[in-house]
Write a protein that binds this DNA or RNA. Structure first.
Length: 902
RNA sequence: GGGCGGUUAGCUCAGCGGUAGAGCACUUCGUUCACACCGAAGGGGUCACAGGUUCAAAUCCUGUACCGCCCACCA
C-alpha cells in the first residue's frame, strides 16, 4: 500500500461535519424512492422553541436517528420528520422575561406586537435547535420540517376543534381551575406539581347567630374565609346533631352562613367542620354546587385580594366592639394573598376568634412553568370531555396494537386513562392557536374556521368578537403524527407514513402528550398514531441530581460535541440506555467513549496498513477453505455478535447492543485476533487469510455500530477497500453473516487456548519476567495440537517444546495443559510462594464447596444431570490444578500441607 | 395515602434459579513498527436487611429500611 493518510489520533470534529454535509448532499435524509421497500417512520417529538437543547435531547433525538439508520440498513424506506413546537406558555414566558429585561411591559405592547416579537424569537431559537440537531448527527428529513403554528397545521387544529365542538366534546364551563398568578393563565393538572411545605393550621371560631355557641373550623388559608358561604359537617357527625341548618356568623365580615351537612368533611379531621369557599377550592366548589351556594370571588387573577364581591355582604351592625368591618375589608383590597393572610390572622387574634394556630404540613400546588404557587380560581374555561375518546385508546394498548417499552409504562398509561378527567384546553395567553369561537351580539357561540365562516354560520346575527383565549399547547401537539403529514388534506405523505412506527419520548409526558396523540389519532385517523412507544431514561448529573439550567447542574451537549465528538456523546448516553429509568451523565464517561472511538480508529488503521493493494473493486470476502481455528473462532464470534446486536436493536435495548459490540471489538478482535494474527500478517505468503477475516469483520462491525456512531463508522468505511454496495456506509445493507460461520468447536478450542495463555502470562508475572519479552524456551505436557503456536507467540515464548525441562522449573496448569518454565536461580521465590499459596487456598475452598454439594444426597437426586456432570468435571479440574500448585510449592521449598484449608 | 423503579467491587452499571461480571479508578510490570485516548498481570463484593420457597437464591415469594420517580380533592 502506497501512501497512508490516517493519523494515529481520530479527529472527530472535522470528520463529523464533513460527513454530515455529504450525506445531506446525497439526499440520504429523504426516504428512499424505492417504494417496494417496507416503511419505517417517526415524527420526532417537536422540541420547544425556548432556547437550546439539553442532555435529555442529546439522548432523545440520537435514539431516533439511531433507529432510522438501523432500519435504513435493514432495507426499509425511512422517514424521520422533524419539527418544533410553539410551546405556548413556555415560549410566552421566555419572551415576556426578555421584554421585561428591556424595560418593556408586555401587557402594554398589545397582543399583535407581542406575537410579532415571539415570531422573531421563534426564528432565532428555531435555528439554534436545528443546528444542534444536525451537530448531533441526526439524519432527519429537513425538507419536511414542521412547526405547530404553520398555516396548514393551524387548519388541522381548527378542524379538530370545530368537529369536537359540534360533537359536544368541547364545551365552555365555569370551574375552579389551576390559576397561575404570574403567567395569569389557567394550567392543567398535569402542568402542576404538588409540594409539601411546613405551614400553619388556623383554628377559627364561628359563632352561631342565636348565641347558642360556636363551631370551630380549621383552615390553612385564612385569607379565603372572606369568601366563605357556608360551614359543612358530615351528616353522621354526632357533635353537630341538631345544629345543622342553624346560622353562623362569619368572623370579620359578619355575613350569615348556614351550617350544612355534606359528605365531603372528614369527621376524623380536626373538629370535623369545614369552611366552604366555592370560588377558591375545587372541593368547596363541588359542595357549593350540590347545595346551590353563592360563589363570591376574593382573589383576582394576580392572586391579590379583591373585595367587590364581598363588600355587599358585610354586616357592620352585627359586629360589636366598634370594629369597622367594611373599613377593614376595604383596606385589604389589592393586597397580595400572603399579606392579606397576615392581616386577617392579626385581626382574628385581636377579636379573640382565632382559637389556636398549629404547625402543619400543607400541600401546595406549584405551576411547572412559573414555579409560582397555584391559586385555585373559579373561572370560565373551555373543556374537552375525554372520557369517550379514552375508550378506544385504552383498547389499543390493552390489545397490544400499541406497546410501551419498557412494558411497565403500559400500566402508567392505563391508570391515567381509566380515571381520565375533563381537560381544560383554554389558556389566557397570546401565543398559540386562538380558540376558533366567535360570539354573536346576543352571546351565541359559533365554532368556525374564520370570522367570515362564523358570519355565514350565524344565520343573520352579527359576529361581535372572537374568543381571546388560545388553546393548550398539547391540544395542537396531540395532532403531531398526522397534522405534520398534511392532514386534513389527504396527502400522499399521510397515506404513506401514517401510522408511524415508533414514538420515542420521556416518561414525564406519557399522559400529557402520548395519551392525547393516541386519542386524537384514533378519533380522526381511525388508526393508532404509532405502534411502539419507547420511553427512554432521564439523564441525571454525575451525582444523581436532576439536570437543570436554573440549578446550574446542566451540561451543554454542544461543548462535548466540539471537544470529543457527537459520536462520543451518543455512545455515552445510548450505551446506558436499557430498561432503567435514570442514567447518569459524566464527563469521564465521554472520555471513555472518545477513547473507544480512537481504539476503533486505530484498529481499522492497523488492518488497512496490512492490506496489500487496497484497491477498490477487489473482493475481500472470506474464503472458507484454509481457515485456521482462530479464524473460524473469529467468524463464529462475529456471527454471534451480529445476532445479539440485531435482536437488541429490535428490542430497543441499546445497552446490550453497545456492550456486545464493545466486547467483540475490543476483546475478541483487538486483544486476541489481531495479536494472534500479527505473525501471519507480517508474512506476505500468509497474510491473505487474516486480512480477509479482518476486513470482513471490520465491514460488518462498522455497519452494526453505524446507528450509534455514524460519523466515525462512515469515515472508516470510506477507507476500506470494500465498495460493492454504496458509496456511503449509511446507505449500505445490514450485514448478512453466514450461518456457516457459527463454529462452537472453534469457540471451545480458543477459550481453552486463551486460558492457557493467561495462565502462562500470570506465571511470567510472578517470575518478574517482563511482559512481551521473549522467553527462550518452555515446555508443555498435554493436548495442544495446532494451538501450540498461538500459545507460544501469545505467551511470548521463543520455543515451546513438548516434555519436561531438565533442571529446575516452575509450572502452570490450565485447561488440562501443563506448561513448565525453566528457572535459572533468578527468582523471587518468596513472592512466588505467597502467590502459589493464595491460589491453593482459593482453589481448595472452591473444591470443598463443590464436594460438599456433591455429597448432599438431595442434590444428587434432584438436580439436573448436566449440573451434576458439570460439578464433577469442575472438581476433577480443580483437583488437578491443586496438585500442580502443591508441586510448585514443593519446588519452591515450601510446605503445601501447611496451607491447605482444613 | 396508592403505585413504579432502585439498593451487586471505591465509582457507574450488567447479571435475574446452578454458587458473582464489565468499564472506570487502584496496585505491579511494560513504550514491540495500530492505538499510552495503549498493552499484560493483579487486588477488591457475607449481591440493603429479615423471613420463606427450593437439592440449590444476587436471581422467585413475603415483609422492612433507605434513595428516586409518578399518581391522589383531606380542610
Amino acid at each position: 500500500m502506497a501512501e497512508f493518510d490516517m493519523p494515529p489520533r481520530y479527529d472527530a470534529a472535522s470528520t463529523e461535519s464533513k460527513w454530515y454535509a455529504r450525506w445531506e448532499e446525497a439526499g440520504l435524509f429523504q426516504p428512499d424512492p424505492d417504494e417496494s421497500k417496507p416503511k419505517f417512520s417517526i415524527t420526532i417529538p417537536p422540541p420547544n422553541i425556548t432556547g437550546s437543547l439539553h442532555m435529555g435531547h442529546a439522548l432523545c433525538y440520537p435514539i431516533q436517528d439511531m433507529l432510522g439508520r438501523y432500519q435504513r440498513l435493514r432495507g426499509k424506506r425511512v422517514l424521520i420528520l422533524p419539527g418544533q413546537d410553539h410551546a405556548g406558555i413556555a415560549t410566552q414566558s421566555v419572551v415576556s422575561k426578555q421584554l421585561k429585561k428591556e424595560g418593556i411591559n408586555p401587557a402594554e405592547l398589545g397582543r399583535e406586537k407581542f406575537v410579532e416579537r415571539v415570531w422573531e424569537w421563534r426564528k432565532e431559537s428555531g435555528d439554534t435547535i436545528l443546528k444542534q440537531l444536525r451537530a448531533l448527527g441526526c439524519a432527519f428529513d429537513w425538507t419536511r420540517t414542521r412547526f405547530t403554528l404553520d398555516p396548514q397545521y393551524h387548519d388541522a387544529v381548527l378542524k379538530v376543534f370545530i368537529e369536537w365542538f359540534e360533537r359536544r366534546l368541547i364545551f365552555r364551563g365555569k370551574r375552579v381551575v389551576n390559576w397561575d398568578p404570574v403567567l395569569r393563565t389557567s394550567v392543567s393538572d398535569i402542568e402542576t406539581e404538588r409540594q409539601t411545605i411546613r405551614g400553619k393550621l388556623y383554628h377559627i371560631r364561628y359563632d352561631f347567630t342565636d348565641g347558642s355557641g360556636s363551631v370551630t373550623i380549621a383552615t390553612t388559608r385564612p385569607e379565603t374565609m372572606l369568601a366563605d358561604v357556608a360551614v359543612a359537617v358530615h351528616p353522621s357527625d354526632k357533635r353537630y346533631e341538631g345544629k345543622v341548618g342553624k346560622t353562623l356568623r362569619l368572623p370579620l365580615v359578619g355575613r350569615e352562613l348556614p351550617l350544612i351537612a355534606d359528605i365531603y368533611p372528614d369527621p376524623n379531621f380536626g373538629t370535623g367542620a369545614v369552611k366552604i369557599t366555592p370560588a377558591h377550592d375545587p372541593n368547596d366548589y363541588q359542595v357549593g354546587q350540590r347545595h346551590n351556594l353563592e360563589m363570591p370571588v376574593v382573589l383576582d387573577e394576580r392572586a391579590r385580594v379583591t373585595v367587590k364581591e364581598i363588600l355587599p355582604f358585610v354586616k357592620n351592625p352585627l359586629l360589636g366592639g366598634g370594629f369597622d368591618a367594611g373599613g377593614f375589608i376595604e383596606s385589604l383590597d389589592g393586597l397580595d394573598r400572603y399579606e392579606a393572610r397576615k392581616r386577617i390572622v392579626a385581626a382574628l387574634e385581636e377579636s379573640g376568634e382565632m382559637e389556636k394556630i398549629e404547625d402543619h404540613d400543607i400541600n401546595i400546588i406549584v405551576s411547572d412553568r412559573s414555579k409560582e404557587v397555584i391559586e385555585p380560581l373559579l373561572s370560565e374555561q373551555w373543556f374537552c370531555d375525554q372520557a369517550k375518546l379514552a375508550e378506544p385508546a385504552i383498547e389499543a394498548v390493552k390489545d397490544g396494537r400499541i406497546k410501551f417499552t419498557p412494558e411497565r409504562y403500559n400500566r402508567i398509561f392505563l391508570d391515567w386513562m381509566e380515571n381520565i378527567h375533563e381537560w381544560n384546553i383554554s389558556r389566557q395567553l397570546w401565543w398559540g392557536h386562538r380558540v376558533p369561537i366567535y360570539y354573536t351580539e346576543d352571546g351565541d357561540t359559533i365554532a368556525a374556521l374564520s370570522w367570515e365562516d362564523a358570519e355565514s354560520k350565524a344565520g343573520g346575527k352579527t359576529i361581535v368578537r372572537q374568543d381571546d383565549d388560545v388553546l393548550d399547547t398539547w391540544f395542537s401537539s396531540g395532532l403531531w403524527p398526522f397534522a405534520t403529514l398534511g392532514w386534513p388534506e389527504e396527502t400522499l405523505d399521510l397515506k404513506e407514513w401514517y401510522p408511524t412506527s415508533v414514538l420515542v419520548t420521556d416518561r414525564n409526558i406519557i399522559n400529557l402528550w402520548v395519551a392525547r396523540m393516541i386519542m386524537m389519532g384514533l378519533d380522526f385517523m381511525g388508526d393508532i398514531p404509532f405502534q411502539d412507544v419507547m420511553i427512554y431514561a432521564t439523564v441525571l448529573t454525575e451525582d444523581g441530581k436532576r439536570m437543570s439550567k436554573s440549578l446550574g447542574t446542566g451540561v451543554d451537549p454542544m461543548g462535548i460535541i466540539e471537544t470529543k465528538g457527537a459520536d462520543a456523546l451518543r455512545w455515552t448516553l445510548m450505551s446506558q440506555t436499557g430498561q432503567n429509568q435514570d442514567i447518569r451523565y459524566s464527563d469521564k464517561k465521554t472520555d471513555d467513549a472518545r477513547n473507544w472511538a480512537n481504539k476503533i480508529w486505530n484498529a481499522t488503521r492497523f488492518i488497512l496498513m496490512n492490506t496489500p493493494d487496497p484497491q477498490a473493486g477487489a473482493s475481500w470476502e472470506v474464503k472458507e477453505e484454509g481457515l485456521e481455528t482462530v479464524d473460524r473462532w473469529l467468524l463464529s464470534r462475529l456471527h454471534a455478535t451480529e445476532k445479539t446486536v440485531r435482536e437488541a436493536y429490535d428490542a430497543y435495548d441499546l445497552q446490550t447492543a453497545c456492550q456486545t459490540l464493545y466486547q467483540f471489538f475490543w476483546n475478541d478482535v483487538c486483544d486476541w485476533y489481531i495479536e494472534i494474527s500479527k505473525p501471519r500478517l507480517q508474512d506476505d505468503a500468509q497474510k491473505e487469510i487474516p486480512t480477509r477475516c479482518l476486513l470482513t469483520c471490520i465491514d460488518v462491525f462498522l455497519k452494526m455500530l453505524h446507528p450509534i456512531m455514524p460519523h466515525l463508522t462512515e469515515e472508516l468505511y470510506s477507507h476500506l477497500p470494500i465498495r460493492d454496495e454504496s458509496e456511503f456506509l449509511m446507505d449500505c445493507k445490514w450485514p448478512d453473516v453466514k450461518a456457516t460461520y457459527l463454529d462452537p468447536d472453534a469457540e471451545t478450542d480458543m477459550a481453552l487456548t486463551f486460558d492457557i495463555v493467561s495462565g502462562i502470562r500470570a506465571l511470567r508475572h510472578d517470575l518478574n519476567l517482563t511482559p512481551m519479552k521473549v522467553l527462550p524456551i518452555a515446555y508443555f505436557q498435554g493436548e495442544l495440537g495446532t494451538l501450540a503456536e498461538i500459545v507460544r507467540t501469545q505467551a511470548w515464548i521463543g520455543e515451546l517444546r513438548p516434555g519436561i525441562p531438565e533442571g529446575g522449573y516452575l509450572s502452570t496448569t490450565r485447561s488440562g495443559v501443563e506448561v513448565h518454565i525453566p528457572i535459572e536461580g533468578l527468582l523471587d521465590s518468596e513472592k512466588l510462594l505467597s502467590s502459589a499459596k493464595r491460589d491453593l487456598d482459593k482453589l481448595g475452598r472452591e473444591r470443598d464447596s463443590i464436594r460438599e454439594r456433591l455429597s448432599n444426597q438431595q442434590f444428587v437426586e434432584r438436580a439436573k444431570p448436566e449440573v451434576i456432570e458439570r460439578a464433577r468435571g469442575d472438581i476433577e479440574r480443580l483437583q488437578k490444578s491443586i496438585r500442580e500448585i502443591e508441586e510448585r510449592i514443593v519446588q519452591l521449598g515450601g510446605d503445601p500441607r501447611s496451607q491447605i484449608h482444613q
